[in-house]
């Protein structure tokens, strides 16, 4: 039995780093290496300690035709969205719709309940006494705007997401303290492992690393 297992072992493809498949030719190893990397690389990241080199790198990457990239920064950086080429105006529009909904809902509930559902004569006021409805309509507008804003922001940002490939990167803890990361993602159509790696190394970053999936 023991002999049988020993014979069959070279046919099984072990993942890289398993320490067994180094028997094959160098060429084959490189091929496997590339194939594996294609599946395990999520992106290539460069780390900076200042905003200016980050912005320059983002502009250069955009110029080089990369579109699938993102920066990870300890605070909002002015001009970064422009540098990356990220445009998004969803939030104000979404919040406006939320506010409009709250406004109409707030007014409607008062108009309906005091005019029809539970019509009462309060000191001779008309049933549709709109000046009395202003405050609650206003408060509902604010409430719905805030709720759509906060929950819309979280949902569109895909939060909560407790796992993300960037967290695999050693030293990524400093993204929330004092370091700035620019990552070109592997799903970018211009992404080529060797070329992108070489490109990122020209950016003057503190270090360039591969981010595993």
């Amino acid at each position: 039995m023991a002999q049988h297992v020993e014979k069959s072992s070279p046919d099984i493809e072990f993942p890289i780093g398993f320490g067994i498949n180094n028997r094959g030719a160098d060429l084959r190893a490189a091929e496997i290496d590339r194939a594996q990397r294609k599946h395990s690389v999520w992106g290539i990241t460069a780390e900076f300690d200042e905003t200016d080199p980050l912005l320059n790198a983002a502009r250069a990457a955009r110029k080089a035709g990369y579109t699938r990239m993102d920066a990870y920064t300890p605070m909002p950086v002015e001009g970064l969205s422009d540098a990356i080429g990220y445009r998004n105006k969803q939030m104000p529009a979404l919040m406006f719709c939320g506010g409009l909904l709250g406004c109409s809902l707030g007014y409607f509930i008062q108009w309906y309940s005091l005019g029809y559902g539970y019509a009462l004569n309060h000191g001779g006021r008309p049933y549709h006494s709109w000046p009395n409805f202003i405050v609650i309509t206003f408060e509902c507008t604010i409430l719905f705007t805030a709720l759509t804003g906060v929950f819309g922001m979280l949902i569109l940002n895909g939060l909560p997401t407790l796992y993300h490939p960037m967290f695999n990167l050693e030293g990524f803890e400093r993204h929330s303290q004092d370091r700035f990361f620019l990552t070109i993602e592997a799903r970018d159509k211009n992404f080529d492992f060797e070329k992108t790696l070489a490109f990122m190394r020209t950016m003057g970053a503190l270090r360039v690393e591969v981010v595993e999936k």
Partner: peptide
């Protein structure tokens, strides 16, 4: 919530934060 300081996140975040301040 798994916040990772992504530029896309900050982009939406700042828009919401400013409007929240405004309202």
């Amino acid at each position: 919530l798994g916040w990772r300081g992504s530029n896309q996140h900050w982009h939406r975040y700042m828009a919401v934060y400013l409007i929240l301040a405004g309202i």
